[in-house]
């Protein structure tokens, strides 16, 4: 990742936050989604949970060597 990649991501995020606060009042009806920046937390938190659960908790239980069914 180069610096300008991060700058673009930052600009897109800022633009989305501005849009969230500027233009969507009354459009959201469900309680959790009224939390400010909810989808940012959800995207980041959801990714962390899925990766850690999948690779660190679930993976060690179900992962076996490649020839498991053939040995």
């Amino acid at each position: 990742m180069k610096l300008w990649h991060w700058i673009i991501l930052g600009l897109v995020t800022v633009a989305s936050i501005v849009a969230e606060f500027a233009g969507q009042h009354g459009e959201v009806s469900h309680l959790p989604f009224k939390i400010p920046l909810f989808w940012i937390w959800f995207g980041a938190g959801g990714s962390v949970v899925l990766i850690l659960f999948g690779k660190k908790l679930f993976g060690p239980i179900v992962e076996k060597k490649e020839d498991y069914y053939n040995d």
């Binding site: 969507q24 980041a44 962390v48």
Partner: peptide
């Protein structure tokens, strides 16, 4: 094509990407 839908999607995708990159 509502603003809410665009904002939700963009925020989820951007921060999913950032977490992927870090992890």
């Amino acid at each position: 094509f509502t603003l809410h839908h665009f904002v939700e999607t963009v925020q989820i995708l951007v921060f999913t990407f950032i977490v992927f990159w870090l992890m």
